[in-house]
Design a protein around this nucleic acid. Sequence first.
DNA 1: GTCTCCCGCCATCAT
DNA 2: ATGATGGCGGGAGAC
Length: 381
Amino acid sequence: MALSYSDIINPSSKHHTYSRKQKSLGLLCTNFLTLYNRDDIDVIGLDEAASKLGVERRRIYDIVNVLESVGVLARKAKNKYSWKGFAAVPKALQELKEEGLRDNVNAIDKQSNNSAKVVDDDEDEDDDSDSNPNTGSQNENYGIIKSTAASRADHRREKSLGLLTRNFVKLFVCSNANLISLDESAKLLLGDGHNSSIMRTKVRRLYDIANVLSSLKLIEKTHAADTRKPAFRWLGLRGKSENGSGDLESRKRTFGADVTNICFKRSKLDSSVDGDKSQSLKMQKQIKDEKIVTVAERGNADQDSQQNSGSFQFGPFAPVSMAKVGNSEEEVTQIYDWEGLSSTFRPQYHNQALRDLFFHYTEAWKSWYTEVAGKKPLHIS
DNA sequence: GTCTCCCGCCATCAT
DNA sequence: ATGATGGCGGGAGAC
């Protein structure tokens, strides 16, 4: 049910009715990136972005928080973000990885020094009288940020989309997990002692995050091979176009691929955007015309940090200043590097459940690797 | 039906 | 006080 290009060019022909695809966060993010992924961009004003993209501010906050978490943007002042671009992503991912692994080690140390009170900082967050009792068990010790909840501000921050994004990304970069189901990521990020309402809310947030990260080609949305459960596959710096055509998700609701955000509201009249439609259509055409070229570097921490190497690409929005490089052979070569990395960076879970889960992920990865790369699985465990 | 996730209310923070 | 930020969950479109 993907819209054709002619639909985009002439949206009025078919879209008199509301279509939520046209309003998706992923698409909005795509447009945002199209608008700002340029060398001459330095500072981005949120109001300006909102009006140019024809959306309300609130949506810009959603995007900006996720983009900031992966280094594409940095908050500069009220209403202002500086554009760091995709070149900053490898460093941001590397930092997340280091942070995650460091926290992992700290958690283990802490536990070994405190044998009588195992991971009792799980309760830290619960001592706020109005806190949510279900967030307390989250994060365990595999490197996900866990603040001390010293203040209400911290408490609020703990729930932020930005932090959730960082933690979500850490799930991938701190392990070699390549495919994580929605269920599992929700449980990992929120803890298992949840009630369904809290879980539902957080899953909504995961969708939000996933849509933006998909737009960045850092992940792709897919399904677990066995269960068909929704799942996220980490593309990371690899994020190459599969089959070279970029249509890997065409059969499903896609993220940031085909239409403009600027159109119909679900339940209220859209008052602001007529003047922006042509601009948005131009952006769409530009998106279509871009080549999607990315290079595999997944799992290679050293290469991750080499942001100036010029050897990576991000989805359809390669930094203007960067040469496009990449071929499948290079990808295969780099994929082999996983093996060494798996031993170097494998998280040391002291929690049996997490160990089991990690084992599950590595198995899933092996399975995927075997299928996609046509190779024998690496002996990761 | 369930799955997705847009939307905007409104609490909280910053100025 | 006012504007900026963003958590949150209702509810509707997509499947």
